[in-house]
Design a protein around this nucleic acid. Structure first.
Ligand SMILES: NC(=O)c1ccc[n+]([C@@H]2O[C@H](COP(=O)([O-])OP(=O)(O)OC[C@H]3O[C@@H](n4cnc5c(N)ncnc54)[C@H](O)[C@@H]3O)[C@@H](O)[C@H]2O)c1
Ligand SMILES: NC(=O)c1ccc[n+]([C@@H]2O[C@H](COP(=O)([O-])OP(=O)(O)OC[C@H]3O[C@@H](n4cnc5c(N)ncnc54)[C@H](O)[C@@H]3O)[C@@H](O)[C@H]2O)c1
Lengths: 212, 212
DNA sequence: CCATTTTTGTTAATTAAATCACATTTATAG
DNA sequence: CTATAAATGTGATTTAATTAACAAAAATGG
């Protein structure tokens, strides 16, 4: 059997980071192999969903044996490009941005906030975790001299569209926002939202609507 | 036509908070009515999806007119229970938890972190934004004297299962975690994850796999 | 008041995701 | 080496979500 050539479903890709992280944890704990049923127990995904997901990335398992954890990590790590540093820029170093910068993806060696920007003159010039906060208009030049693969924005909603317009002008195409303000961008630019309020509201809602 | 009696799809419920927020913004800006097509433009959802979603909650629109914004806000607000304060507890007041507590859902008058807990004696006793940080084992009593509708956890992954076990013992059934550690809970307990690393990895991935 | 336009709500069609079910492969034990 | 057990990978099926298409309803403009 050869690897699929069908288009890989969006949801299978979305689950890759979870697979990757879980497999790394297992490897760290000395495990060498895993069966879809065991993995499913850990991350609460049906084994059959796991097997189908994996099948999109090649013939990764062995019948009667399971999957070699190191091999899965190798394959998934390649897709996630964990062997090259993915430089990120942080826009808005308020309370939330500061927390992200202090942590700076400690657990993910290949993700790194390499530069940070703010509009507040009181904040500009301050150094946190070896990153010196700059004025946002320095980003254009920075993005030419260093690889910035994406941006995390923790600016307030009211500033977000304006910031995004500037980022787009700088050639940034991947933006993750903590402000839920919907923005308009060219279709080659991707904006994802991490919407805390919606998450909390849904959490409370789905508990109310007592489970199936 | 009468309201549906079919089961409301998960995804329609998931979108409610976004509808609600957007409609409130429109109302704040003086708008009185909205058409599914306009709303779709703003939040990037197909008008037909919006109309179908709305239809689950009653006969809310008028042909040739659109939807009355105040009416939608009323209906959706009721479902989201925005008129009763939803008390939340915060567990883990490190850098991230602190940012959440300082903000404390400023923009959402009905969501409120009413108590905060940590394990670190240096942190316990400190007051942030009128909330005094307590030892986690105070939560059991607190949850009996004040309504805690849900918990936000910003404790490190390695502590999360232990914290969750305690929360479950206290009768908490809704938990939002910033640590991606998968935990086991009874099936009446809901855990949602806000997984920053996965979001970033997917953001970069989906940009690589150049858009459809 | 009537004709035209707009826009909803929903049935039908489509697309996407998850799951079932099982033939096939490999491991293992005797 | 063979028989048995275990687990994968994938067609077939089911379930869920989205989108298309359009009849019916309401508004608007003579
Ligand atoms: N903190 C939370 O609990 C929380 C929760 C949910 C969502 N959010 C979202 O994240 C945003 C940030 O939260 P926060 O608590 O860090 O707020 P904050 O006010 O502490 O920080 C915002 C930062 O953005 C900077 N900024 C403003 N306009 C800018 C611009 N045009 N360019 C560059 N920087 C600019 C400000 O100077 C400030 O440092 C919030 O507005 C909200 O939309 C925060
Ligand atoms: N900060 C980030 O950028 C970031 C990004 C992604 C995910 N996260 C997740 O959020 C978690 C918290 O992030 P942070 O930056 O605030 O870390 P942090 O270390 O600053 O804060 C963690 C807090 O949890 C407390 N704690 C530890 N064990 C506890 C227990 N058993 N009971 C109660 N409190 C306990 C600690 O005392 C500390 O105050 C991280 O471990 C990570 O899993 C953080």
């Amino acid at each position: 059997m050869t690897p699929h050539n069908k288009k890989i479903p969006r949801m299978s890709i979305e689950r890759l980071p979870i697979y990757y992280r879980t497999l790394c944890n297992l490897a760290d704990n000395g495990y060498l192999r895993i069966k879809s049923a065991q993995l499913g127990k850990i991350i609460q995904i049906e084994p059959t969903t796991i097997r189908r997901d994996f099948s999109y990335f090649g013939d990764l398992g062995k019948s009667g044996y399971g999957y070699d954890i190191a091999h899965l990590i190798q394959i998934f790590g390649e897709i996630l490009e964990v062997n090259e540093t993915q430089g990120l820029a942080l826009i808005g170093v308020g309370n939330l941005g500061r927390a992200l910068l202090i942590n700076n993806f400690r657990r993910n060696p290949n993700l790194e906030i390499v530069s940070a920007y703010d509009a507040d003159p009181h904040v500009i010039g301050e150094t946190i975790n070896e990153v010196t906060i700059q004025s946002l208009n320095e980003l254009k030049e920075d993005s030419q001299t260093q690889a910035i693969k994406g941006v995390i924005s923790t600016v307030p909603s009211h500033a977000f569209q304006e910031v995004v317009d500037y980022l787009v002008a700088c050639g940034i195409t991947s933006i993750l926002s903590f402000a839920p303000e919907p923005v308009h961008v060219p279709k080659n630019v991707h904006v994802r939202y991490l919407d805390l309020t919606s998450e909390v509201q849904n959490l409370l809602l789905l508990s109310d609507i007592a489970e199936v």
